[in-house]
Design a protein around this nucleic acid. Structure first.
Lengths: 139, 139
DNA sequence: CCGTATCCAAGCCGATACTG
DNA sequence: CAGTATCGGCTTGGATACGG
């Protein structure tokens, strides 16, 4: 696969061309993985695990992902494990112990999301302004 | 073995620091805008309008965003307009005409999403592999 | 042509209770 | 400790009908 310039200009035509070379299945999975990024809990959970820098137990993750419910955390973790973004290791002990860790693929994903997130965060005032203008119009 | 980006401009710690300088409102809006990226229709609709390169009518957008329903398209367009990503211009004609166009902010957003999307698309086989391995384990 | 209004089915998510 | 099972409220999105 050809290398692309690491800086702009990334343009939409380029990516579109590449995506059209994917099969329907591949394209579908691509969308699904992008959707995962905006999932309510997935990215947050991943970053918590990644920052911990060592295997992290279920209960400790739960403490750090604010108000997530046990059910949602379980579901989120299973999804991340399935997609190879984290690992899950069960220890046959009493009481049970389960440890989660970020994978290289997961870390790579975080690194690829970071610039976008940063851009959005830095643009937040423009979005606020747009909303204020929009809401103001209908008064 | 694929090489991992040698942590150029961005790392997760950096973004985290920046985000913590945001107010709760700003942080909340940031998350909302990131979520918009993974919305089922938003990004697709934006790219269709952006590629058209000139004002685009409602019905033409609908033709190009595959099987979207009228209701969902209306809702998506309103959201994008509210956030300043597209413009909406109504012409007082019979029959009515409404034209949509991408804004500079919207174009910027597409350019910032492109690298991430491309990375996901190029990594799609690794995700497929992870899923195959995961599903295979439970057989 | 470009919507809005209404109904309905599916799915998410939290709360709670229970298990190995 | 780390889940699973179940229920119920809430949101989402398609289908349809209708309005300006």
């Amino acid at each position: 696969m050809k290398k692309i310039s690491p800086k702009p200009p990334f343009n939409w035509e380029h990516i579109k061309g590449f995506c059209e070379s994917l099969t329907d299945d591949e394209d579908s999975l691509t969308r699904e993985m992008v959707a995962c990024i905006a999932d309510k809990w997935s990215l947050w959970t991943m970053s918590v695990i990644a920052e911990y820098r060592r295997p992290m137990r279920f209960s400790r993750i739960m403490e750090n992902v604010a108000v997530i419910s046990q059910k949602s955390l379980t579901k989120t973790l299973r999804g991340l494990e399935r997609d190879g973004l984290i690992t899950r290791k069960v220890f046959a002990e009493v009481p049970p112990r389960v440890e989660y860790a970020i994978t290289p693929l997961g870390a790579e994903m975080l690194n690829n999301v970071a610039p976008l997130w940063l851009w959005v965060a830095k643009s937040v005032h423009r979005f606020q302004g747009a909303r204020a203008a929009f809401d103001g119009r209908s008064v």
